[in-house]
Design a binder for these strands. Structure first.
Lengths: 230, 230
DNA sequence: ATAATATGAATGAAAG
DNA sequence: CTTTCATTCATATTAT
């Protein structure tokens, strides 16, 4: 909380005039936009690097890269090394009230909310919390899809199992869920395998210039710098 | 890596290599050296990312030889499916490289690709992985359509942000409150607004935790300010 | 902590 | 071209 406030401060009192008053005559000053751009760039780079490194680790250690969730890194202030925790995107969550309303609208059966309706809804729900048209759109989209899927879920499992269908040899070990593709198998798009099977897909293997360890250390250092902005 | 970590690290005015060394705590002011360091830092990040990506490609391209083809339908049912779940997808997914190229072509603005053009593109991209003309066609269609959906008037409530307090509930290294898991006592979280449009800010950052494909494209884009994201 | 699940969002493909 | 569907991904939440 405190931090945020500070940040605000920092970003609000930019521009070139007030600063020189005391002792910063030979300093360069950045505009808000410039600062923001810089911050974002660094932030993005930091994030990307983190994730690339993580991927690398996952792959080389043969762990299935399911996880990949870089949760949080606890950065002991004493350690100094920043973890760029960097903006965790938080996704929209409807407030109970919003949800209620959405639910109600959905039940009213109007299948397709249409553009305009979405706008209205958004506007309406905006009274109760942050929301955007996209959120509304997505919500209906998901709601519809999932409600449809529920319809053939609750029954027995082995009932379905594509019989006459060209099925999918899909190894797909277990995976009990009846989330089979009920309607269109759609497996047959004419995806031509016209590319040469014997093609050399490995042609762009060449070793990086520097080792992984070095990369890592660089990233470490970099992170510290970034923390100024983040 | 102790240096900056906190802007309150004011004790050193004569500079270590920290960035925010001045006495004026929250000033966006930088000395020449600091500026230079920053620049270098960014540059380093770029280099690191490039190389990490390259490493990744080296590694994964070998795996490609095994399976991972998109069709996945050539899995012989008779094989008993002992081969565990080769991660395969039923629908085409552009490889990072392909995506980059597509993105680039799209940005060149040559409107709707003609039949012939699509053929060419497909051919070209086929060098980097399985792809079909249909895929390319669909991609452009979607890309076009979705890029067009950028005229949402944010009539929603919180448009806030006059540039000053741009969100980022982001706290920072120190004092970072543990985990204010927002069970949302309706403290308004400013969500990332949806589709931003041509607003030069609010470009990246939105989703730090993204797939590799997107990472790749982001790297491409990070240097400039093209508003690719969505 | 770890696993499981619920759900917001992203996106290839298809329908209209 | 525009809208919708189906599927998958990522994250938040909950349960073990």
């Amino acid at each position: 909380m405190e931090e945020i406030k500070k940040k605000k401060n920092m970003s609000s009192n930019n521009n070139n005039n007030g600063i020189g008053g005391s002792n910063n005559l030979y300093m360069k000053v950045m505009s808000d936009e410039q600062m923001e751009e810089l911050r974002q760039q660094i932030s993005v780079y930091g994030t990307i690097c983190d994730q690339l490194v993580q991927m690398h680790n996952s792959i080389t250690s043969q762990q299935d890269l399911v996880g990949l969730r870089l949760g949080s890194l606890y950065c002991d202030p004493m350690m100094g090394c920043s973890g760029h925790k960097i903006s965790a995107r938080q996704r929209w969550t409807p407030t109970p009230l919003q949800l209620q309303l959405l639910e109600r609208i959905f039940d009213e059966g109007n299948g397709t909310p249409t553009k305009q309706k979405i706008k209205d809804i958004t506007n309406e729900l905006g009274q109760h919390g942050p929301i955007s048209e996209t959120n509304v759109y997505n919500w209906f989209q998901n709601r519809r899809a999932r409600s449809k899927r529920k319809q053939l879920a609750p029954t027995s499992i082995n009932n379905i199992n594509n019989n006459n269908n060209n099925a999918e040899p899909e190894a797909e070990t277990e995976l009990d869920s009846p989330k089979q593709k009920k309607t269109t198998p759609q497996s047959f798009q004419l995806q031509p395998y016209d590319y040469d099977n014997s093609s050399p897909h490995s042609l762009y293997i060449h070793s990086p210039d520097i080792g992984f360890d070095q990369l890592m250390s660089k990233i470490e250092v970099s992170g510290c710098y970034s923390s100024y902005f983040l």
